[in-house]
Every structure is written in structure tokens, then in C-alpha cells.
Amino acid sequence: MSSIKSISDGLVLDAEQEAWLQGWLSKFGAWVYSGRLEKRQSSIIAEFMATVEKRDYPEREICNDDDGMLITKVVDKIYHIDRVAFTLLLLRYAFVSSDRAIARYYYGIAQPRQMIRRNRTLEYRKPSMATCRREVKEIIRSAEYLIYPHLYNTFKIRDDEWKKKNNSKNVLTSLSQ
């Protein structure tokens, strides 16, 4: 099972935060899928994208390159915490895989482990597909919870720097007149 679930400790985003994050991650996923992420960079996402086959998708809304690079830096942090969670995020947002398709992938890589049966006995076995679906949902939710504050702060810092830069240009322009 993924280790990222224990880090977020079951905390979830509220509806507004989730909508904001999923909007950006969807645009980012389309940006990654389009191949705009430069291969010459030693990006973890670029390496992952090189290993999978592309499928045709209808045109999706895409973020610009500056936003894409900012989001890449934040999402790459998940890779260092938990590679399974990172892969599940890419499957959801870059490849627009359904929850069931992601669960099938997760089921395929799931290793047998000690699990509690309904009669409260411990047994060493591979998790069921239903268990994999629940775990995938929890892992993605946990990864999104961890990404949100970093991504929000990154965009806020960038916007503040942009405002300062524009304000200084306006001051210089008014002084020169």
C-alpha cells in the first residue's frame, strides 16, 4: 500500500480548494500529455511519459508553459515521497484514465500483504479489486491534499512578484514623464 496516505492522515480539501486544484491539475495533465514538457530536462514526468503509449484525446484545456513548469516542480515532490501516488496522479490527469482503469493498474502492481478478513483473522494475500479502488481513491485524495498548499503558495508568490514588477515599471514610467 502507498505510504502517502499516512502523511496526509485522512485530511481532505474543501470543495472550493478541490475545484481549484483539479482545474489546474487537469490543465497541467493536458500540457504534459501534449509533449510540451521538454525532454532535454531531467524531469521525472518526462521520463515517465516516455515509457507509455499516447492515446488520442479530444482537445483539452491546457496551461501555458510557465504554469506547467511551476506545477511540474510541485508535482515532482510527490515523486520523491511516493512513486505509486505520482504514477496514479499522472494516470488520472495526463492520461485521463477512469478510476476503474487506475484501480486495475494498481491491482496489477499490488503485492500480497497481511490483511484482516471479515472473521477478524489475519491472512497474507493480495488485496481485492474493491480494496484497490478504495485505496486508489484515498491515495489520489491524499496526494492532492499534499499538493494543494505548495501549489497555491507557488502561484501566490509568483503573482506577488509579478505585481511588484509591474508596480515598479509603473512608478518608473510616471517618473520619466
Rank of each mutant, 00 (worst) to 15 (best):
D56C: 03
I147M: 14
I147F: 06
L90E: 02
Q22C: 09
R134Y: 09
D159C: 00
A30Y: 04
Y107P: 00
P58C: 14
L175H: 06
L175V: 09
S3D: 11
D66H: 07
R133W: 00
W162C: 01
K156H: 09
G29A: 10
E16M: 09
R118N: 11
I7A: 08
V32D: 00
R141I: 08
R40C: 01
L146K: 06
E61W: 10
I71M: 11
S3T: 10
Q22I: 10
T51E: 14
V32C: 13
E47G: 12
E61H: 11
D14I: 11
V74Q: 09
W20V: 09
T173H: 08
V171E: 13
R118T: 09
R92Y: 02
I62K: 13
F155E: 10
F28L: 08
L122N: 08
Y107G: 01
F86L: 03
G108N: 05
Y106V: 05
I4C: 03
A15N: 10
R113K: 14
I139V: 15
Y124I: 13
S34A: 15
I78K: 01
K5R: 15
R133C: 12
H80A: 08
I102Q: 12
R113Q: 14
E123H: 14
I7Q: 09
F28K: 06
S42T: 08
K126L: 11
H80Q: 12
G10N: 11
G10S: 09
I157Q: 12
A143V: 07
D159I: 07
E53N: 12
P58M: 15
K165I: 02
T131K: 11
L122V: 07
Y106D: 06
N170K: 14
E135V: 08
T87H: 03
K169C: 04
A103C: 03
R40K: 13
S26D: 12
D82A: 12
K54L: 09
H150Q: 13
R104S: 09
R141N: 10
R36G: 03
G10R: 13
D76I: 01
D9R: 15
K73S: 15
L21I: 08
R158K: 14
S43E: 01
L70M: 11
W20D: 11
K39H: 05
Y93I: 02
R117G: 09
L37M: 12
Q111H: 08
L25D: 04
I116D: 02
I7W: 07
N170Y: 07
K77E: 13
Q41A: 12
Y145I: 05
I78P: 01
V74T: 13
I102H: 03
L175P: 00
K126W: 06
I140Q: 04
E38I: 07
L89V: 04
I71W: 02
R92V: 02
E135S: 12
T154F: 05
S43I: 02
H80T: 09
A101L: 11
A143M: 06
M1K: 11
T121N: 10
V74I: 15
D160H: 05
K27D: 11
D82E: 12
E18W: 06
S142F: 05
E138P: 00
M115R: 15
P112W: 06
M49S: 02
G23W: 05
R133Q: 14
V136M: 07
R40G: 06
C132K: 03
P58S: 15
F48G: 02
W162G: 00
L172Q: 12
E123T: 13
N170I: 07
E53F: 04
I44L: 10
